[in-house]
């Protein structure tokens, strides 16, 4: 059992003998997102990344909810389940918990995962089922044509909020850390290299990995992440989170503040040793949480990368271990013995 608890990750998923390429993972279905949608870039990034894992294609499953982003599984030449709004984490939990030989991916939108499916998301995270959850955050409801979402900024003018939205948005990273997630990361559709580096670690991680992907919806919320893409400002805004490296952007740095928290300061004003060094593996989540709050108000400085990646037994391996333990203690179940257990009597 202890061996198992060291982490299943992808260890039980069979490896492919053949060399694979991106084309092996493209399905024959015509991709139907709006031209220019950020989903294309993410699809291409995933299709060109997964062959690297060297897994048998038939042992990979993409499960999604409902939304533009949730069409994703149709385009992957793997097993796929396009389910119902918000429920993908629940469906994927049943699949992953009963099939340790599968690499299970959840594709979800900000509405799908944080409105209707919020409950399933937080419970999947705390359980730490072997799932990779890719949260396509375009800060809008795309498929239903542009209502504000739980990640839309306050005051958002949409069809359903002509005078501006009132509700404070969720910060998906803070939410995930608060929900006991063992792997939490943020990346962006336009930076394929970064996106793929995050996916790589997410795939190998034992338990649930949550990857928030900033995704542009050029129809209903165009330019939501422009600051992070604009060559003029992106290097100053983006705080790179890399384990063991100082947390900096081109011009800014993060350090411990006098009040015990952390703060963003002018990089030139601090000595190198004062800059906070990122520790993604820190057991205590409070620093990772503090990092997730640096992006308030939004887009002044945005941490990108892996906030948190800690080892914790996954739900599915522990569930399997309990079954094994039950058999080890009392032998495999026998139906006749079961039915005859307890008080019985014979007639005739």
């Amino acid at each position: 059992m202890s061996e198992l608890l060291n982490g299943r990750g992808l260890s039980l998923v069979p490896k492919s003998d053949a060399k694979q390429g991106m084309k092996d993972y493209k399905s024959d279905q015509e991709v139907r997102w709006c031209p220019g949608c950020g989903d294309y870039a993410i699809l291409a990034a995933v299709q060109s990344f997964v062959p690297e894992l060297g897994l048998k294609r038939e042992n990979m499953v993409f499960v999604s909810g409902i939304g533009c982003s949730s069409r994703f599984p149709y385009y992957m030449n793997t097993y796929g389940f396009h389910s119902i709004h918000g429920r993908a984490p629940a469906i994927a939990t049943g699949l992953a918990a009963s099939r340790p030989d599968l690499s299970v991916w959840v594709i979800t939108g900000d509405g799908d995962s944080l409105s209707i499916g919020g409950n399933h998301l937080i419970h999947a995270l705390r359980r730490n089922v072997n799932l990779n959850i890719l949260l396509f955050n375009n800060r809008i409801y795309g498929l239903t044509k542009g209502q504000y979402s739980p990640t839309s900024e306050v005051g958002k003018i949409t069809k359903s909020t002509p005078m501006g939205s009132l509700d404070k948005p969720f910060n998906p990273i803070s939410l995930a850390i608060g929900a006991e997630a063992s792997f939490v990361a943020r990346t962006i559709d336009s930076d394929r290299k970064h996106l793929q580096s995050v996916l790589r670690e997410a795939a190998e991680h034992n338990g649930t990995s949550l990857v928030e992907i900033y995704q542009n919806c050029n129809i209903f919320n165009d330019g939501a992440f422009d600051q992070l893409k604009d060559p003029e400002q992106r290097d100053d805004i983006t705080l790179r989170l890399e384990h063991g490296r100082p947390i900096v952007s081109a011009s800014k740095a993060v350090r411990r503040a006098a009040d015990g928290g952390i703060e963003v300061v002018d990089r030139a004003s601090v000595a190198e040793e004062e800059i906070l060094v990122h520790d993604a593996h820190r057991a205590d989540p409070s620093l990772a949480f503090a990092l997730s709050r640096l992006d308030e108000p939004a887009f002044e400085h945005v941490p990108i990368g892996i906030f948190r990646s800690v080892g914790r037994p996954s739900y599915d391996e522990q569930m399997a271990a309990q079954l094994e333990e039950a058999v080890a203690q009392r032998g495999p179940g026998d139906l006749d013995n079961l039915l005859l257990a307890g008080d019985t009597w014979r007639i005739g």
Binding site: V63, F81, S83, R87, P89, A90, I91, A92, T93, G94, L95, A96, A97, S98, N119, H120, H123, M319, Q322, L323, E325, A326, V327, R330, G331, P332, G333, L338
Partner: peptide
């Protein structure tokens, strides 16, 4: 009765319960 290879999953709500069963 885990000895029979039965997995029981106490879900966060009824929707997740049936969802997980369907996924399985």
């Amino acid at each position: 009765h885990k000895r029979f290879g039965i997995r029981t999953f106490q879900a966060e709500d009824e929707i997740a319960g049936v969802g997980a069963a369907l996924g399985a």
